[in-house]
């Protein structure tokens, strides 16, 4: 509810990526439905949604490998042809794609040649991800963690303006996950723009400043992360005259929603409204409560609610 009304805060920074009413249909399946969002310079933007919600499809389209059925997208205000814009984007996909018979260095030379770069940064990025020692062994001999790290090196090779990450911690061990998050945060802290697709709320919450929540290819909410995934206060209230209490509470500006919960009322209030204050408010109206219980709802619940099946959330 809140999420929908949340206003997206735009600043004056350049729009790195603008997606307008993007749609993709695979036969009968509508994988993406008129998705629109804007990533501005310096944003750490999370694309959050359950598996199969259309995150990877969205990334595939904006990276030029999936054809959209409708809508459009623009990199860097459309200053240059799309494939040239893509050279300025660092991309880390779920599965690293490299030539198995080429070494780390040779694979990065191919990437560098495509991006129109020299070999200067190859050593730097391989050292950054701890692969310099293994630089001359073929990619096919690498473990999953090493493959993922080579993909990070490739993504950083062009010192890109924006990093696009698709489920970057999938399949990694806890140490790998921690390392990866640290790398992403360090990159974000250096002022780079990041677009991170993930189904893990915790990950998005820890890393991102902006978020778009999608489900079944539809945008449910977008904006600053605090606005979209705000933890709300949920109170359970009991009283002898429940109807009068409900009428009274509806007057309170910080009460967002009231719904019956068995013999009690479930009252959703703004986060900063203390239960004492609400109790006092009711008392001042000449009513008294027989039950007042605070239930703080976590982000997890907000996320689940956002992506739940109810139409009213969309």
């Amino acid at each position: 509810m809140i999420a929908i009304s949340a206003k997206i805060q735009y600043n004056s920074a350049m729009t790195v990526l603008e997606i307008t009413q993007l749609s993709k249909r695979y036969g009968k399946l509508q994988a993406l439905q008129e998705l629109s969002l804007q990533v501005r310079q310096g944003n750490i933007y999370g694309l959050l949604g359950p598996n199969g919600s259309g995150k990877t499809t969205t990334l595939g389209i904006i990276l030029g490998v999936i054809r959209a059925s409708g809508g459009s997208y623009r990199w860097f205000d459309g200053q240059q042809p799309e494939h040239l814009a893509r050279r300025r984007v660092g991309v880390l996909l779920e599965t690293p794609n490299f030539y198995p018979y080429l070494s780390a260095v040779k694979n990065l030379e191919v990437v560098a040649a495509i991006k129109g770069l020299g070999r200067e940064r190859i050593q730097t990025v391989l050292e950054q991800v701890n692969l310099w020692e293994r630089r001359d062994t073929p990619f096919r001999t690498y473990s999953l963690g090493m493959r993922q790290r080579l993909a990070v090196a490739a993504a950083l090779l062009s010192d890109p303006d924006i990093l696009v990450l698709d489920e970057p911690t999938n399949g990694l061990d806890p140490q790998g996950i921690a390392d990866m998050r640290q790398i992403i945060q360090a990159i974000g802290a250096s002022g780079k723009t990041i677009l991170l697709a993930s189904h893990i709320l915790d990950e998005v919450e820890k890393i991102c400043t902006q978020v778009a929540v999608i489900k079944r290819g539809k945008l449910l909410a977008a904006g600053d992360i605090e606005d979209v995934l705000r933890a709300e206060n949920r109170l359970l209230i009991g009283a002898s005259d429940l109807a009068a209490v409900q009428r009274c509470l509806e007057q309170h500006p910080q009460v967002q929603r009231i719904q019956p919960q068995g013999a009690l009322l479930e009252v959703i209030v703004d986060e900063n409204l203390a239960s004492e204050a609400l109790n006092r408010f009711v008392f001042e109206q000449g009513l008294s409560l027989s039950h007042l219980q605070q239930q703080r709802k976590g982000l997890e619940a907000t996320f689940l609610e956002l992506t739940a099946d109810d139409e009213h959330t969309a």
Partner: peptide, 15 residues
Amino acid sequence: QFRTVRQNVIDGLSR
């Protein structure tokens, strides 16, 4: 098979 045709496009080649 290596999905590198996809990767090449992502890296910045046009089709």
